[in-house]
Design a protein around this nucleic acid. Structure first.
Length: 582
RNA sequence: GCGCCCGUAGCUCAGUCGGAUAGAGCACCAGAUUCCUAAUCUGGGGGUCAGAGGUUCGAAUCCUCUCGGGCGCGCCA
């Protein structure tokens, strides 16, 4: 509805040449906002204050000129000037009635904008290393990323959701070695387990099912002879030696088979977990594939061409300090191995080359150190720094009975996303994860998320939806019909304050979706839905819907049907179900 | 030491390119149903927006400094 007001102002300005010249750079719509207080009307514009300085006139004079130039519009009942120069707009009931009709005719499409050709967005999120199950921290990234993706799509953008699988490098070797040792253990071959290895029970489960045909378990002494001591100081050397030993005994191929099966098993587990959580990816992008397709070399060649690489101490460096980084970064080590950073540059280069012009990375807060250098890499290759946007997810702390729940991956004693989902359910988990701003630490209280009571906002909102459904069931039981067309024509009967308030809140939905999408801020939608549910529950308690007067009844049912529609759309974006019954 | 994020009610947090009297939930207190689900509603008390300067018609919001908390600073991934 905001555009109605913006257009009015725009038209008024066009008849005021000196003001419209001053306002040329101003997006009129950005001056219009919902009022916080109903006594200030429905919308207010601060345009007069914004123009006061450049136009060298007083805000109230400017407001006066604009108001005088406003044409008649059936959507607007009254306009006045208030305070330092706000222009307040009071919309007509007809405008709200038209919006209700739009809600019901648009249905699932209500709040969705027409497709935009640009920018095409590549949204990368979760991207947890495939070395173990997802834990509760990844769950926040998953919920946030999925919801932001839904919001962006609702706002009309083309969104490609991608998970970057870190299936190359040393961590994969350590994973392979961990599985190998558990497999040996299952065959009675006892070898000291490395401190840096993966100790979770899932490693044993993988070891029990992998295909090792043609690989014979060696004697314990054949494995452990000549290995470095397994101490804290030596832990890296010890693991590396084990990887080497596995390759000696079973060949590169043998080790590869174990490692590859381990990572595929874990990756599939992660994928199933996310799918069950309602989080879908369009693509699972393999880091290995970057190397296989020589994409890393391509990226380095581009940097080379642009004079953005140099040799020092036998290694190849990228001068990221030219782009604001603390120090230059190695891309090829003196032993010829390319660094993780080289893959990262190549990956982002590849994303851009695939035709996505806006890249959004959703990362854990502990990864913020990488952003400067990855962005530097893109800039050095000729892309805009702004092409890469990074949203950080702060940490999650679980609480149970007021106590902090301890977490930790390596110990094998972690709290997994799966455990969390089983305990509180998908709906509560999806909701709680995005309830707070992503740059705030999140205290996740398991007791509240589980409670089916008034202190749980998920149920509060779902209950509003179920209540509407229940009213329509009651109607049916009373053998009454809802005459939608009659309801539409009788909307003028809805003059109760609760009805006005509900209509106003409903009409905000498209603005909230756009705001939440633009700011990558799902919590706006969460808070909105809470407000909407509150308006509905208040209305429910104040007035009966199924009344004898058919005109009033049809009109009220029209209003609550629209409410049900908007709640369902909003919950849909959050990935939370909208139940018919609770 | 340097960099990034954060600091708003007793607790957990919203607060929109800067906008009118800073909001919500929980907790606490007092009420509401012969009626469509009480998983609901109504009312109440509660604030030095960490602190100090600055920018301007106007600052929780922007800038600087100080204090406090989190995270990151490898030829690891």
């Amino acid at each position: 509805m905001k555009h109605i007001v913006a257009e009015l102002i725009q038209n008024a300005l066009s008849s005021l040449p000196e003001l419209s010249a001053t306002a040329a750079d101003l997006a009129i719509e950005s001056t219009v906002e919902r009022t916080r207080d109903a006594s200030h009307g429905d919308f207010a514009s601060n345009i007069a204050m914004r123009l006061a300085k450049p136009a060298r006139k007083s805000p109230r004079d400017i407001a006066g000129s604009i108001v005088a130039a406003l044409g008649e519009n059936p959507a607007v009942d009254k306009v006045d000037i208030a305070g330092p120069g706000f222009i307040n707009f009071y919309l007509s009931p007809a405008a709200f009635h038209a919006e209700l009709e739009t809600i019901l005719t648009a249905g699932e499409r209500y709040g969705r904008q027409a497709p935009k050709a640009h920018p095409r967005i590549l949204l990368e999120f979760v991207s947890a290393n495939p070395t173990g199950p997802l834990h509760v921290g990844h769950g926040r990234g998953a919920s946030y990323g999925a919801t932001v993706g839904n919001l962006l799509e609702a706002a009309g953008y083309h969104v490609h959701r991608e998970y970057y699988v870190n299936d190359a490098g040393r961590q994969m070797d350590i994973l392979g070695a961990s599985v190998w040792l558990r497999w040996l253990e299952a065959h009675g071959v006892e070898v000291d387990f490395p401190r840096g290895g993966y100790r979770g029970e899932y490693i044993r489960e993988i070891a029990a099912v992998i295909d090792t045909s043609g690989i014979e378990p060696p004697a314990a002494s054949a494995v452990s002879h000549g290995l470095p001591e397994n101490t804290d100081e030596n832990s890296d050397a010890y693991v590396d030696a084990l990887v080497g030993r596995c390759k000696e005994l079973h060949g590169e191929d043998g080790f590869d088979r174990i490692r590859q099966q381990a990572l595929e098993s874990i990756r599939d587990e992660i994928r199933d977990d996310l799918e069950a959580f309602g989080v879908h990816f369009d693509e699972w992008f393999s880091e290995q594939s970057l190397t296989k397709s020589s994409r890393v070399d391509d990226a380095l060649a581009v940097l080379e061409e642009r004079g953005m690489l140099y040799e020092k101490d036998g290694a190849t460096w990228f001068p990221s300090t030219q782009f604001g980084d603390d120090k230059d970064r190695v891309v090829v080590r003196d032993n010829g191995v390319k660094t993780y950073f080289a893959s990262d540059i190549a990956y982002h280069f590849d994303k851009r080359e695939r035709g996505y012009d806006h890249l959004i990375d959703i990362l854990g807060a502990d990864h913020h150190g990488y952003v400067t250098r990855v962005r530097a890499g893109l800039t050095a290759m000729g892309y805009e720094a702004g092409d890469l946007e990074v949203q950080f997810i702060q940490f999650v702390t679980l609480y149970r009975s007021g106590e902090r729940v301890q977490m930790g991956t390596r110990s094998g004693q972690f709290d997994t996303l799966r455990q969390l989902r089983e305990e509180v359910g998908n709906d509560a988990a999806r909701f709680y994860y995005v309830m707070r701003s992503n740059d705030q630490h999140l205290d996740f209280d398991l007791d509240v998320a589980k409670s089916q009571s008034s202190d749980n906002p998920v149920y509060y909102i779902q209950y509003a939806h179920a209540r509407v459904a229940s009213v329509f069931r009651q109607l049916d039981e009373k053998s009454l019909q809802w005459d939608e067309a009659n309801g539409r024509s009788q909307l003028g009967l809805l003059c109760e304050p609760q009805e006005k308030s509900l209509m106003s809140t409903l009409s905000r939905y498209p603005e909230v979706v756009e705001l939440a999408a633009n700011n990558r801020a799902p919590q706006h939608l969460v808070h909105y839905l809470r407000d909407l549910a509150n308006d509905f529950h208040t209305y429910y308690n104040a007035h009966a819907f199924i009344v004898d007067d058919a005109a009033v009844r049809d009109a009220r049912l029209y209003l609550i049907a629209a409410t049900r529609n908007v709640i369902a759309n909003g919950l849909g974006i959050l990935g939370v179900s909208a139940p018919e019954k609770m």
